[in-house]
Design a protein around this nucleic acid. Sequence first.
DNA 1: CCTAGATGTTCTGTTAACAGAACAGACGAT
DNA 2: ATCGTCTGTTCTGTTAACAGAACATCTAGG
Lengths: 223, 223
Amino acid sequence: MTEPGLPLLGSEARVGSGGPDAAPSADRTPGASISAGSDAPTAAQFGAQVGARIRRLRTERGISLTDLARRAGLGKGTLSELETGQRNPTLETLYALTNPLGVGLASLLTSWRPAGHAHGVSVQGEAAGAYLLDVLEDTETGSITEVYRLTVAAGPAYVSGSHGPDVTERLTLISGFAAVGRIGRLQEIGPGQSAEWISDSEHSYQVLSGTVVGILLITHPRR
Amino acid sequence: MTEPGLPLLGSEARVGSGGPDAAPSADRTPGASISAGSDAPTAAQFGAQVGARIRRLRTERGISLTDLARRAGLGKGTLSELETGQRNPTLETLYALTNPLGVGLASLLTSWRPAGHAHGVSVQGEAAGAYLLDVLEDTETGSITEVYRLTVAAGPAYVSGSHGPDVTERLTLISGFAAVGRIGRLQEIGPGQSAEWISDSEHSYQVLSGTVVGILLITHPRR
DNA sequence: CCTAGATGTTCTGTTAACAGAACAGACGAT
DNA sequence: ATCGTCTGTTCTGTTAACAGAACATCTAGG
């Protein structure tokens, strides 16, 4: 601690105005995270994010604050101030919320930012986009693989242009159902399933149902 | 809260005696769960797990308790009692540890083993092992997928024990050649290729040539 | 208008998480 | 043996997270 300005939410640690979660840049390229991160959110900001996320999860499920507090065995005031980012919750408190909300701790704490767009997968509507997790290089073959967490919102298919014959994409779904791949040769996949294609022609990502989240690997030769 | 016996670690919330990670009930292994009533760990057990995990991450990195406390801006006593499971840490406290340890919050809190060694893939030499990139949750099915960057050094095969029938692993290689999967049904893969197996029996990772780097997805039910 | 029954926020006293000091062991060096 | 420096644990006073009550705010329904 030590840090002076900590009284969680000193002034404006606002979180989500319009965007679903609106998180800053927490863990860029994790591999390089030793860097005395200057762009990592402060503890206060992070706390406010977590609070906002809890409130969102609660309202999505249509349960009232009072009710959630009761189910989790928390005081109303505790939950209220937690959701508004005025409290620095205890692990026990967070843990108590996971069951009533039906999510794991990871969902409460990982910033789920729709990162705008990485690599041309543009944001469509809200809560869609790709977040770059890592970049790996095969020093022998010289190929580079980018690892993204891909989120696609329901709606019209996103169509991506050709990236050339040397670019391979592999998508493994975590949740939802989607039809992905080269146009004319779409592959339908669900949670736990994968699709793979070469991006030498137009390809698309189309949500069939649910919220589509997956891990996308894009491999291409070194530039 | 409400629950009376909460003063974290009332008496015996012991976590790990000897094993590599000393994972308690949380991880499947059907027969072995301590489970009093439900099989979800209590808040106290969970806190003790988190503490043990922090201590392991710290010692793996060869930093002393005093040093880590200083780097994280925490009091020594705080960290000591946290690691021994006698405290119920604050989100802010946990967050302060992520940067000095070079891991994300998810690594501290997910009951799976985080960076260092994922899954019995023990660290050998330096720069070998698995780095946790992300944790994704399918809120519908409740399954959790952890995304690792896996690095395996040449040498004897790493053998990992069974993780139960609910755990699926998917490895996509970026570089190198390896034989992976369940023992007796090893699959040989190279850059750009994938292997998938269910971890209900012993499985191994064996480098055939080159430096093996890949993306490993581990999917298991919540908690 | 006034209740009745929700909602979420602010207040109040208790309890425990916190920083840091004091402490206890273990090891090396002189 | 007696420092000196490291380790991690236990102690002490302060601050804040907590439960729950009191308080607001809103929307019916009569």
